[in-house]
């Protein structure tokens, strides 16, 4: 085989092509909106975060300053780094609380009880309140804290055992307990829908085999609603972070119109903030995703073994080929060396 055979490019089939076309058709309207009002502004705000922007009577004046905004925030701003750290800890702590609380409530509401419909309604109701000015008013009135819990006492007790910033974060979580419960409306709903989709025959089978309710929860319910747990955790993080009551958002907003800071500075803050948010979501996802079920693990192990075997076979074959080639070469050489000699002899 002297000539190299060109590998023909595999053409996309008609069906796949049609499907792809429909995919683009379906996504196009959203994409146009997203490009104009999400992606382009995001990119622009990143550019702005690297610049100093002043509004002058003659229009915007943008001077590129590199990462100066970022260093300024970390080195000179007296609030932002601390608030970011506090936000980080607090969110990390309240996400599990909200998700677990939502799951418990969803489990309770999924049982056979009277007035179930009414109960569900009431648990979802806070969702229509927690965003917006109403909530601001409520927190302003002190209605969102349990007055009987002494936050200071909790803080003092905790501060003995752990570093200061951690203790204050935990104390804050206790202080905002009612708020946290109010945030869990959508999560309860998502869990409920997931719980209702679980086939009841699974539970029956488990019961016949002698599984208790506790075991049923860990072996059937939890693995089946796991994707929803992740969804809920992510949703919770986003909800907490993009809430109007969040103090960091207020800081960013006020920095935007402050004379000495300006829009570039605020953009840099916002980018840092979303980075922290992404980090939290990454941590949450990591915690959720590392626990694979036993079956999944087995499959993975088996596949790995198979791949290993295949590689070994290939290697052996390659080795064999190389060996064969070497032998061939030697043989050829020997033959070539022998040929002239033989020819001479014959002459």
């Amino acid at each position: 085989m002297g000539k190299k055979e060109k590998v023909k490019k595999v053409k996309i089939g008609k069906l796949a092509k049609r499907e792809a076309r429909y995919g683009y058709i379906f996504i196009a309207p959203w994409l146009i909106g997203a490009v104009l009002f999400l992606i382009k502004p995001l990119i622009e705000s990143f550019q702005f975060s690297l610049a100093d922007i002043r509004m002058t009577p003659f229009g915007r004046r943008i001077t590129f300053v590199g990462y100066e905004n970022y260093t300024q925030i970390w080195l000179e701003d007296k609030d932002f780094p601390f608030m970011l750290a506090a936000y980080f800890l607090e969110t990390l702590m309240s996400v599990p609380i909200i998700v677990v609380f939502a799951l418990i409530i969803a489990m309770l509401l999924n049982g056979k009880i009277k007035f179930k419909g009414t109960f569900r309604l009431i648990f979802f109701l806070p969702v229509i309140i927690v965003s917006g000015p109403v909530m601001l008013m409520l927190t302003g009135q002190g209605a969102a804290t349990i007055s009987s819990i002494n936050i200071q006492a909790i803080y003092n007790t905790l501060a003995i055992y752990m570093p200061n910033y951690l203790a204050s974060a935990i104390a804050d979580v206790f202080g905002n307990m009612i708020m946290i419960l109010w945030y869990s409306g959508v999560q309860i709903l998502i869990f409920l829908s997931a719980l209702q989709k679980i086939d009841s025959s699974l539970y029956e089978a488990a019961k016949i085999d002698g599984g208790s309710g506790w075991e049923c929860f860990w072996k059937i319910t939890l693995p089946l609603i796991k994707p929803m747990v992740l969804l809920n955790a992510v949703y919770t993080v986003i909800f907490i972070s993009n809430n109007e009551n969040n103090s960091i958002i207020n800081i960013i907003q006020s920095a935007m119109f402050a004379g000495n800071k300006g829009y570039g500075y605020a953009s840099a803050m916002a980018w840092m903030y979303s980075l922290a948010e992404t980090l939290i979501i990454g941590i949450v996802a990591l915690v959720m995703l590392t626990r694979k079920d036993a079956y999944d693990k087995q499959v993975r192990k088996f596949r790995k073994e198979m791949r290993k075997e295949q590689r070994a076979i290939k290697r052996a074959r390659r080795k064999g080929m190389r060996y064969a080639a070497r032998v061939n070469k030697k043989l050829n050489k020997a033959l070539k060396a022998a040929e002239p000699a033989e020819a001479n002899k014959q002459r």
Partner: peptide
Amino acid sequence: KLRFKGKNLFININQAALMFVAVAVMIPR
């Protein structure tokens, strides 16, 4: 449910946009 090129990119873009606070994109908008 549909298969087409760049699908994962769009999903990632949406997720990135999810993280971003609305205040920050106000002026570019």
